[in-house]
Amino acid sequence: MAVDTARARSKLLGLSLPRRGGPATNESTGLLFTLPIIFLFVAFNLLPTVYAFVVSLTTYNLFTPPTFVGFENYLDLLGNRNFWQAVGVTVGYTLLFGPASWILGFLIAMLLKDTIVGRDLFRSVFFVPTILSSVAMAVTWALLLRLNGPINGVLDISVPWLTNTQTALLGISLLGIWQSAGWFMVIFLAGLASIPESLTEAARIDGAGTLALLRHITLPLLRPVFAVVVVQTIVAGLRVFSPMFIMTGGGPANSTRSVAMLIYQEGLRDLRMGSAAAISVIGFVFILALTVIYFRVFRVREEIGY
């Protein structure tokens, strides 16, 4: 993101200067142009967030009319072990797949930063897993991770990846790492490219070694990029659904049931709409807080040039 902020900003700044002269325009036509998609957002994003809160104050099973119960669903969640277990699974997954893919992505980005034979090819190879159908990959990784499957076979180990409560989440995280390392690589590459050559050259002339350079120049300058990566990771953790749903069904013994999967099961499987909506609202509040922080930290307003 830091890529060419400066360039972009100056460009945007120039554009947002008031127009002088020119023919008179009906500026509200612009509003008209934005309305169709705004309508979709209101109907299918905004309305549901409000509606989620309303539903969360009721018990509702789709068949009998909802009854108002106040904040009972929220209070029930506090003592609900399934809920806390799902929160634990979601946090655990985020911690298992996140840092590992950052480190891998960063490492690869550092290796690909400067010219090297086959640079573009390498970049494509590492990036490709991020765009492949995640459902197809979940189904096939479930086969790859079998006890007698090829991953154990090649490593000559026998880890019961997906059938053991101790290892199932780790097994699912392996797929997560494989699918996101390339993504973070691209983001880090862009961040690294934005660090002026002159800065690193100057430090090198001053006798800084590679590690010192990393510590004193590269990492500090990449701080905003890391923040982006952290936010993306947290959101990805909260979204994670299909790997669990497909590879383990949330098992064994619910050891891989994420919050997203719990919402699905509570709502669309067990028809406890109120309770499912309450979990959703908690998730939403969490996302909202994250968004506000994100907008603040990144001065999104300035970034977009208004």
Binding site: N45, L47, P48, T49, Y51, A52, V55, V231, V235, L238, R239, F241, V259, A260, I263, Y264, G267, L268, M273, A276, A277, S280, V281, G283, F284, I287, L290, T291, Y294
Partner: peptide
């Protein structure tokens, strides 16, 4: 930043 996961029920 709003994932489908938190609005799927409504």
């Amino acid at each position: 930043l709003l994932p489908l996961q938190v609005i799927m029920i409504p």
